[in-house]
């Protein structure tokens, strides 16, 4: 069980930034404050809008978190939690509940925190594939 890294982040490698602060310490700070600013738990998880299954499915995702899109030629890296989300949706998880459940087995964080981070990650991915 991993702890303290519930927030999901992704970072481009060559001028291809998906929205993580350039300063690593700033990134770390966001991760650390995540628990404090968590939204109140909700019984009904909101659905995350990821890029289309076709786009997600074609991504080559390595164990290091390096991600390559063979159609656009874009590449970026994600952290361990981002990797877990990508793996989950590539494996067919389609709704927020399933994704959060999958993450919950690997990360020690409240479901609401995981849900919020997944929403944010989905937004960054959508931005990357706009």
């Amino acid at each position: 069980m991993r702890t303290g890294h519930a927030a999901v982040a992704a970072r481009g490698d060559h001028g291809f930034d998906i929205g993580v602060p350039a300063n690593p310490s700033a990134s770390k700070e966001i991760l650390m404050t995540t628990n404090e600013s968590a939204a109140a738990p909700s019984d009904t998880p909101r659905e995350a809008q990821f890029p289309s299954p076709e786009v997600i499915g074609r991504l080559a995702v390595s164990n290091s978190g390096f991600v390559f899109d063979p159609v656009s030629g874009a590449s970026f890296s994600v952290n361990v939690s981002g990797l877990a989300v990508l793996r989950a949706i590539q494996a067919g998880a389609t709704d927020m509940g399933a994704i959060v459940h999958s993450l919950g087995a690997e990360f020690e964080a409240a479901p609401a925190v995981l849900q919020r981070d997944v929403m944010e990650f989905a937004g960054r991915l959508r931005e990357a594939f706009r």
Partner: peptide, 21 residues
Amino acid sequence: MMKKRALTDKGKAWAGISIHD
């Protein structure tokens, strides 16, 4: 097929990556 990843001042490819579209 190729996507340019870095350009010269004249917009020519200085680095690129093979793609399949």
